[in-house]
Amino acid sequence: MNVSNNKHEHLDVLVSSHQPEPSTLKNYIIGFTSSVILTMFAYLAVTHQFAGKWVMIIILAILAMTQFIIQLIYFLHINQEFAPRLKLIVLLSMLTVVVILVGGSIWIMNNLNGRMMDTKAMEQYMNSQNSL
């Protein structure tokens, strides 16, 4: 009987909305302030562009990824899930697909562009064809 009681209480905590839930005000404040700081930092980095283009892109990408993870944890509560962590599994599958899709598309299309006539020459050629 004891066991069943414990189980009941455990579920009650999960189900009943009268009980405090894992997402707390503190979490939201941490998430919000760090997001603001990261956003400002990225903004200032660009307005005082202090490094070359590719260095800047890497810095900005890292800042964006950090903010992404922070919002995942503090706003979307991805870390407060019970096993099996299905939400996390679906999230990671999505990220895999996105990396393959975006990375692959950019790779393929850049490779193609590199083997094409450049845009200026192409436009000139097209204009000459039109005027014929």
Binding site: V97, I100, N111, L112, G114, R115, M116
Partner: peptide, 20 residues
């Protein structure tokens, strides 16, 4: 997983380089 990594074989002739 792999079915997301083969799509270019439908357009090999589009003109991509040999790496791709």
């Amino acid at each position: 997983l792999l079915s997301f990594t083969v799509w270019l074989h439908h357009f090999f002739t589009m003109g991509a380089g040999s790496n791709v």
